[in-house]
Structures are given as structure tokens and as C-alpha cells.
Design a protein around this nucleic acid. Sequence first.
DNA 1: TTTCAATTGCAAGTCGATTGCATTTGAGTT
DNA 2: AACTCAAATGCAATCGACTTGCAATTGAAA
Lengths: 140, 140
Amino acid sequence: MKNIVETLKTLKLKVTPARIAILEIFSISDKPLSVEIIAKRMKDKQINQVTIYRTIESLVSAGIVGRIDLRRDAIFYELIDEHHHHHIVCTKCGLLEDFETCQIEEVSKNIILKSKKFKMIQDHSFELFGICNSCSRKNV
Amino acid sequence: MKNIVETLKTLKLKVTPARIAILEIFSISDKPLSVEIIAKRMKDKQINQVTIYRTIESLVSAGIVGRIDLRRDAIFYELIDEHHHHHIVCTKCGLLEDFETCQIEEVSKNIILKSKKFKMIQDHSFELFGICNSCSRKNV
DNA sequence: TTTCAATTGCAAGTCGATTGCATTTGAGTT
DNA sequence: AACTCAAATGCAATCGACTTGCAATTGAAA
Ligand SMILES: [Mn+2]
Ligand SMILES: [Mn+2]
Ligand SMILES: [Zn+2]
Ligand SMILES: [Zn+2]
């Protein structure tokens, strides 16, 4: 994410303290974040939790933030990366790793060809779940 | 699903009215169901909603029911089919279509080879989201 | 039929997320 | 630089999917 203010202007979103703060937190992190985590990372800023929810919603609608179900206790969000990717999640401890090969182009092309009900796919979820090496060692 | 009672016995799960009723509803349906939908389909049975939650949990743990996030208002569940498959969901109306090509074998093999944190993948989510033909026609 | 862990129903609780409303503010207009 | 107003914000209340505690019931093994 180059310049946050410029990005917001390009998207025709008002440049507000909440949007700047949240986009800053996202751009520093290389991992998906929950609302709870974002709230904790607001140092001095002090932004209402409802505002965080609403701000994230606006960023998701604008198409620069993605929503991910990692099968944990809350929804996670991350900046939509130039490198399209997904995640492997440890179902014990939540450890994350990215992966980039999802072959969505071929798969969705194929599916659209066969489908009678859909002509267009906008989005997809694809996450892998397993036990990480560290957790595997723990319960032998 | 062949015989429900036999299935439960094989899984060493007690044969209870709730399990039978819920497995019956699942086996009749070709679509994922939410707890709310399942509750509505209980004709005369009258089973407490908490019991439905707990029963589904036991079936998920037993490995015969799968949990799916279709980005709707609740979690959906379906019998784990002999034909591994996923879904395309209309983000407007919720219309569903199945697809079977997900190439999980190749993809996960590749990922495990590269990964330093994971040696094993247990499960995956993969759902496609779009607008169905019917909804596309509606808002031109 | 005796036994007991598993299951169930009911009520209450949890908690992430949403909503209503009055106030403030970003940013375009004069 | 002041004016204007839709959008954004904070606070409190609320929603609603889901969970939990507990006493009563029941499936199934002995
Ligand atoms: Mn990521
Ligand atoms: Mn299905
Ligand atoms: Zn992908
Ligand atoms: Zn698959």
C-alpha cells in the first residue's frame, strides 16, 4: 500500500482518522487481523469499536480489504494483496502460513462452462486447515 | 446415507431421536442446511434448538457432517458426500450450485512440499461467490 | 433390571456484531 | 474564510447465533 491518503482519495472515500489508522495497522501487518486485534493495536488513537467495524466494512466494500473465515473465534481481515494468496491455518494454535497456488482461474473457468445457474464468479474462499509442526510435536 | 441407525452404531454414537431426526433431514436434502432450517423441518418431532446444536456438533466430530461458511447469516452443514464437492453461492439470493473439481490433491501436495510450518493438511474450505443468472437479470 | 455416562430441555449467559440517534467533521461550494 | 450537508463518529442499547450450567431423562451395556 503506497500512500494511504492517496489510496482513500482514489477510492472516493473520505480521509478520516479511523480509516488512516486502520489502514496503517493493516499495512504494517503481514497477517490477517480481527477487529479485536486491530482495537488493541490502536496505540493512543482511541477509536470506538463500532467505528472499527464500520470502517472495515467501508474498506471491504471499496474492495481493498478482504474478509477471511479462518475457523477461529472471529472474522479476520487483510489488505487485498497484489499477490493473490490464501492461508494454511493450524487448528490448534492458529499459526498461519500463506500460499499462492490456488488455480482459481482454471477451476472457475471450468465451472462457469458447466454451470446453468451462474455465468460469473466474483470471489472465492480457499483456506487449508491442519496441525502445524510445533503443535504436532506437543501431543504425541 | 444407507441406514441411519446402522451408521450411528458404526460410529459408536448413541441412537437417539435427535440424531435420527437430524440425519433424516440431512439425507433428504441436497443442500447445506442451517440450524434454523433444520429446526423448521422438524415436523412433529419438536426437538430443542440447543439439542440441534449439540447433535450437529457430535455429527461434525464424528466426521459425517461438514461445516460450511457460505457468507450468509449462519453456518451451514451438510452430510459429507462420497463425491467430494464445494459450492457456488449467489451473494444476492443464496442460490446454490455444487461443483466437484477442486484439485485439492495437487494443490495441497505442492503446498506441503514448500511449507516449513506444516507437514499435513486435514481439511479445506473452498467456495465460490457470484451473482446467479436470475439475480443478474433483475438489476440491470 | 440395574447402572451410569451420554443426552436432553430449560433458562440464563456470552460475545461478536448491528442499530438508532444526536453530534461532529471532511470536503466541496460559495 | 465561512457555509453546507452527507458521511462519519461515539455512546448506549440491542440483536442473535451460539454456548453453558444444571437437573432430569434415557440409551445401551452389564
Ligand atoms: Mn495473508
Ligand atoms: Mn453440497
Ligand atoms: Zn485464490
Ligand atoms: Zn475440495
